[in-house]
Structures are given as structure tokens and as C-alpha cells.
Design a protein around this nucleic acid. Structure first.
Lengths: 208, 208
DNA sequence: GTCTATACACTGATAGAC
DNA sequence: GTCTATCAGTGTATAGAC
């Protein structure tokens, strides 16, 4: 039945998401995904013909969860400072819910950059070459008003996103080297970091 | 002969480095490493008994190239501003020479965090829990002198390293989304970024 | 739609000659 | 030290019964 099918499809996707994100495309095993979904391998291939196709689906879902957020936030009607606070806040919350996705996306995209091109071609939503035009204008506007110092928009956005994501994707090494592998200490570190990052960025660009 | 052995061993390591860093532990094939080294699979196993052992060696070499640098830089006799400029400068140069290593380390460490523990146990050089004590004192000292505002050392170091590494490990996605996949444009972006990052950090922490 | 059984290719690893 | 040949195990994918 359709009901049953829908349910099985969801169970497969959930299981596949978990396994692929943890072990990557090449490290994941169809058997493990089947086990985790409570079905057998044959049924996996019935729903998604190949491992690659199943992976593509999982990757696309992960991608669409993270990337469009940036666009939304940049397009809102807020001041630069408010936008930065809003983005950092939302992105760190999102990262807290899905800590494995950024590393997953970054890794698989490095292994196969072509995926991004295919994604852009299939999904217009992701292709936003003029995403920075409005933000550029806003920055220049606030520079003219003497609120912030002159700053390149792409460098700024890279910093905002990078400062949020880096401590998550590089968690094992930072936690190991800086916090002697103390998990609780690192969680405390992450908890206070949201405010630190906002202050760090705003302090850097604001005119005093 | 020993001479020949040394040479073969080097060729294997070079080939293994290339393949492992590009495809990861699970994606790499012993056959491809053998081909790239100009030998056959059997000889691979003669020098390094298993795939895992060969991988460990490659990982350790990559790790030792990147991590101890931070320690060196932090231990030098420079002002905070000089240290930051020095670290960013050196790290970005290093990244330019070895752009695939950080992603490699980050990814494999996420897949198997236990590796870091083993590395620490085997190699005292990496275990530096008091690495921040001296840096903490220096920061506090310059705060007292009114040079910089009060800032947490681990957050600051995370930002310094993260701002250098993030545009490299996330290159495909940033280049794709922000630069319409224009490779030349991204190289130009990276070239000017060194100065931007230094200014960004120092602007944030200095007292004006 | 879901299962069992199996085909088929590939991979890591070893044996044994030179 | 280096090779050829080969094994045993594993992985994706499919055939066919229900």
C-alpha cells in the first residue's frame, strides 16, 4: 500500500542519512542501512535502484537544510549587526541539531565537486549568484553612515559562517588539543561561544 | 638493497598520501596506490602489512606537519598582534602548499576520533595540555596594559585557526555559492584574504 | 511490497617462485 | 625485494517466490 510504502521510504531515508553522514559514501554499507531501517538489502534496491542514487537523495536533503538558510537570513530586513547576530544565532542552533551535516557536505563535496554543479542544474533554488548584491549595498550604506568600517562582503560572510561551523567540523581535534578531550568542557565551550562570536565580529567591523 | 628499499618506501608513502588524502581511508584502493607508486599490491603489503597500517603512517605524517606549528607559533617571543600575524601568515602559506591535509585530518578524525587518543599516547609531542597557560598570561598582561580588550584564549585561537582553514576545507561550496564556481576568482579571493583575516582579528581585539 | 537466495565483481591479503 | 597467481571475504545488485 501507499501508506506502508511512504513509511518504509522514510525509514530507509532516516537510516541512510545516519549511516552516510557517519561513514561517508564509500564507508557506508547497504547492509547496515538495511539493518538500521529494519528491512533487507533487496528492498533498499527496490526503492532506490543503486547506492549512488540513495546517497544523492540523502546529500540533497542535507544540503537543502543548510544552504538556503544563509540566503533567507541575508535577505531579511535587518541592520548589519542584527543580521550577523541573527545568522550566528540561527546557524549555531541548527548546528546543534545537526552537527554531522556540515562535515558530511564538506567532505563529500571535496571528494566529488561535480555534485555541486549537478545540484545547481537540478535545483534553481541553490543558484543565487546575485545573493551578495543586496548585502553589498547594505554594507556600503552603513559604511557611508559611519556605522561600520569598510569591509568586503564575501570575506565577512565567510568569517561569519566559518566561525560557526569550524568548531563543529573540527570538534575532535579542538576538543582533543585544547580541552584534553574533555567532552563536558567542550560542550560548555560551545555554549558560551555563540555570544563570543557575535561580539568578535561586531567588534571588528563597528566604528567606535 | 637498502638504497632501493628506501626509495620504494618513499614512493609508496608519496602515492599513499595522494590517494588517501583524496579518497579517504575507505575510498582508497590498494591497487591505485600500487599503480601510482609503480609497483604491485604484493609489495605494498611487504612494506606495510595492512591497509590500516599504511593509512596510520600517512595520517601521522600529515598530522605532524600541521599541528606542532601552532605550538611553535604560540611559544615564540612576540606580542599578541605579532603572533596573530605570524600564525595567519604561516598557516595560510602552509595551507597553500598542502590544501588537502586539513580536510583529510578533520574527516578521518570525525570518522574515528579514537585515532587522536592513540596518537597522543604514542607521541608525547602532541600532548600539550598546558599549551595555553603561557598564552593566557600574555593575553592578560596585554589586557592590563590596555593594548587589547579581555578575550578568552581558546576562543581566540579557534577563530584564528578557523578563519585560515575554513575557506580551504569548504572551498568547493564557497567557490560554488559565492563565486559562481569561478576558480580564478576564488584564487584571487584567497590571495587577498590573508591580510583581511589579520586585520579582522586585530581590529576585533585591540583597544582603540 | 517484501522476502530468500544468489550472481558477480572487487578488494585486501597471502603463497611461493625468482 | 619484487614479482605472478590466487584465495577468501565482502559488497552491490538482481532473480524469483510469495
Amino acid at each position: 500500500m501507499i501508506e506502508q510504502a511512504k513509511d518504509t521510504e522514510t525509514k530507509i531515508l532516516d537510516a541512510a542519512k545516519e549511516v552516510f553522514q557517519q561513514k561517508g559514501l564509500t564507508g557506508a554499507r547497504m547492509q547496515e542501512i538495511a539493518d538500521k531501517a529494519g528491512i533487507n538489502k533487496a528492498l533498499l534496491h527496490y526503492y532506490y535502484r543503486t547506492k549512488d542514487k540513495l546517497f544523492e537523495k540523502v546529500f540533497e536533503l542535507a544540503f537543502s537544510l543548510f544552504i538556503p538558510r544563509v540566503k533567507e537570513m541575508m535577505m531579511s530586513e535587518k541592520s548589519v549587526f542584527e543580521k550577523i547576530e541573527f545568522i550566528v544565532d540561527n546557524y549555531i542552533n541548527l548546528l546543534h541539531k545537526h552537527p554531522y551535516i556540515p562535515g558530511f557536505i564538506i567532505n563529500e563535496l571535496n571528494r566529488n565537486p561535480q555534485m555541486l554543479v549537478q545540484l545547481f542544474e537540478k535545483n534553481v533554488q541553490f543558484k543565487e549568484i546575485n545573493l551578495f548584491e543586496k548585502f553589498d549595498n547594505q554594507l556600503q550604506d552603513e559604511v557611508n553612515k559611519g556605522i561600520i568600517r569598510s569591509v568586503d562582503s564575501r570575506n565577512l560572510m565567510t568569517n561569519v559562517i566559518g566561525l560557526c561551523i569550524f568548531p563543529i567540523v573540527a570538534r575532535p581535534i579542538i576538543q582533543g588539543v585544547m580541552f584534553n578531550n574533555d567532552k563536558k568542557a567542550y560542550e560548555a565551550f560551545l555554549a558560551q561561544r555563540k555570544q563570543f562570536v557575535v561580539d568578535f565580529i561586531i567588534n571588528s567591523i563597528k566604528v567606535k
